[in-house]
Amino acid sequence: MIMARPERVLRYAAVAGVAVLAVAPWMVSLYKVHVLNILIINIILATSLNLVMGYAGQFAKANVAFMGLGAYTMGLLVTRADWSFWIAWPAGALLAAAVGTLVALPALRLRGLYLAIITISFVLIVHWSFLHARFLTGGASGFSVPHPNYFGLPIPNIQATYYLSLLTLLGAMWIVRNLVASGFGRSLLCLAEQELVAPALGINVFTTKIAVFALSGLLAGLAGGLHAVTLQFIDPQNFWLLQLVVQLCMVALGGVASLLGSVLGASIMILLIEVLRAFKGLWEFAIGAILLLTIVFFPRGIAGLVEHLFPSLRERRHRP
């Protein structure tokens, strides 16, 4: 057999994908650069949600709030306090991570639908606060955010922001990949599969949950900051239920507890949304139909299908 091993194919595909993304800004129109940039940011978001929902098996949906907190903190520090983006951005992400640890506390007691609704309530309250803290956020009208200062980097701002997103994505993937394969990853696995037995196996449920929510919050916060400088605009509309549903769809469509799944799910969702623009009112029907067919035929997402075809690609983790 001369057939290449699937792992190697996957690795080549990943390298090729990154290479394509790296040269894309110079090959396509600014519109497509924008779409690709949003796509990259959404992969980070899907990864962040997948960490909590897929790997740790916690049905929590607070991601959109973390993203919003990251975006608003960064945006307000830059426009109101004249902070540099390079300090404001991580500050926003750290705040999102800190809030993430707070959200982890109810997750210690609540499960399933109850955890879902308490986190959805949290998202709605954060959205409401963005809307009503007018003295700080400008309320519903939102505000513009300048490009980060790229210190005379000889490429245009739009492309520079694109590369910043790409680098962040690669960093996030590297961290999550290593983490999942580590002892921490095995704790997560155990948490998702057998939460009640976990303590007996010497797993500290408390710290594991806190850590995974904090990391998820950090990634979503970073993505929120990137989202804001890509749109150059922040308003509360971007951090509401619809985004939550879209991110949920990304994870489910791509595949739960799978890095490959996050990448595929986010890419497909974002490209679909853009391609289906032409369908106008039927946009919703089309995206619904595609989602339904995918989930009916591949209940474990597209990554599930890939792993089914090539069992050796299965990540070392639990079955969702």
């Binding site: 769809c249 489910a252 029907f285 619904g288 989930i295």
Partner: peptide, 15 residues
């Protein structure tokens, strides 16, 4: 998967 399926259906009906 089931939840996503009902969300997908909701998109379709709304469209």
């Amino acid at each position: 998967a089931l939840i996503i399926a009902t969300i997908a259906v909701s998109f379709m009906i709304k469209g």
